[in-house]
Amino acid sequence: MTDPVTVHVPLGARAYDVRIGVGLIDRAGAEIAPLLARPRVAIVTDSRVAPLHLPPLRAALARAGIEAEALVLPAGEATKGWAHLTECVEWLLAQRIERRDVVLALGGGVIGDLVGFAAAILRRGVRFVQVPTTLLAQVDSSVGGKTGINSPHGKNLIGAFHQPALVLADIAALETLAPRDFLAGYGEVAKYGLLGDAGFFDWLEENAPRLRDDPALRQQAVAHSVAMKAAIVVRDETEQGERALLNLGHTFGHALEAATGYSDRLLHGEGVAIGCALAFDLSARMGLCSQEAPSRVLAHLRRMGMPARLSEIAGDLPDEAALIALMGQDKKVQDGRLRFVLARGIGAAEIRDDVPAGLLAEVLRDAR
């Protein structure tokens, strides 16, 4: 097995490393120890992850002489709200976590976002380490410092930028994922090729069907995705411009997640996959890219067994006008104008605010 890969995120005083490889949870004590002012951490995880990964993490910390207490929250997107944020913060205070201490977020994107936000506001900022256990979290949400919770008005509307002190992406943990969860994370991997690296998308077309079974390919895909995101974050940490490109597919996807109640009807990465297909369809109808590009995106998603149309979401959805209204709560909205990440081709994304409302409704209608 190859050694862990390190992607450095050079953000001055907030710089950190993303470590990617097999066995990093078993080595977590040695990896985390240099960060600690005292040999003690607080771990926050969820009920799905805890039985699988909390015991080996505790054992690794104990071998390094590090004490650990753990809070186990319910699993699922519904956890990413005010109630469990309050529970998390109050528990950390009860554990007497100090500014120099470290909080560990063990889990997927929900736990990483929630715990990162709790760390950002606790005592005006404590350090935290991301230990992402899903493909989606490893390639996207654990890197870049976006933390937050959802609101009934929309996804991720309450939050803060708070960079982790370290990210430990153990790709062996991905072997415990259900096939649907692994594929949902793949939606974010494909996004990187679509938004800015046509060569990576070529590589994915050839190798992605083997990612789940081949650790070396998995490590390569995660490392490349993280390196792409890190480079964009360094250039635009607080999403004033270029970083918004990372939201390819998300304006559609977030609206669909809100429409399905942040439930298991639609996982985040599935929403991103559908959103990418819709974004390329809209781009072609606006004359920005050829018809070949959306066809290629659709064919790849189909080959991977991923959803690509609204009709593949279980249950009823609101009409086009209601979905567009949900898009109006997207964080990219500026001066009341919807802003979309669209494409001039595979690997060439750009931000546009001139999408005709009628054309947008037509794309949504035809995807049913």
Results as ranks from 00 to 15, higher is better:
Gly305Glu: 05
Leu310Pro: 07
Ala299Cys: 03
Ser290Gln: 07
Arg296Asp: 01
Leu298Tyr: 13
Arg285Tyr: 10
Ser295Thr: 13
Leu288Ile: 04
Leu298Thr: 14
Ile274Thr: 05
Gly287Gln: 06
Arg302Cys: 00
Ser311Gln: 06
Asp281Gln: 15
Pro307Tyr: 08
Ile274Asp: 05
Gly275Glu: 08
Glu292Tyr: 00
Ala284Trp: 10
Leu298Met: 09
Leu310Asn: 04
Ser311Val: 00
Ala308Gly: 12
Arg285His: 12
Val272Pro: 03
Ser295Val: 03
Cys289Glu: 13
His300Lys: 08
Gln291Lys: 10
Ala293Pro: 10
Val272Ile: 15
Ala299Ile: 01
Cys289Gly: 11
Ile274Phe: 12
Leu301His: 05
Phe280Ala: 06
Cys276Leu: 15
Cys289Thr: 12
Gly275Met: 11
Arg296Ile: 02
Arg303Gln: 14
Ser290Leu: 01
Leu301Gly: 02
Pro294Gln: 09
Leu282Glu: 11
Met304Thr: 02
Val297Ser: 04
Ala293Arg: 05
Arg309Asp: 12
Leu301Met: 13
Ala279Thr: 11
Cys276Gln: 15
Arg303Cys: 00
Ser311Glu: 09
Ser283Val: 03
Arg285Ala: 11
Arg309Gln: 14
Leu301Gln: 09
Pro294Val: 00
Gly305Asn: 08
Ser311Arg: 15
Ser311Asp: 10
Ala273Asp: 03
Val272Thr: 06
Leu298Cys: 11
Ala279Ile: 12
Met306Pro: 05
Arg285Ser: 06
Ile274His: 10
Gly275Gln: 09
Cys276Ala: 13
Gly275Thr: 07
Phe280Asn: 13
Arg302Ile: 00
Leu278Ile: 04
Gly305Lys: 06
Ala277Cys: 13
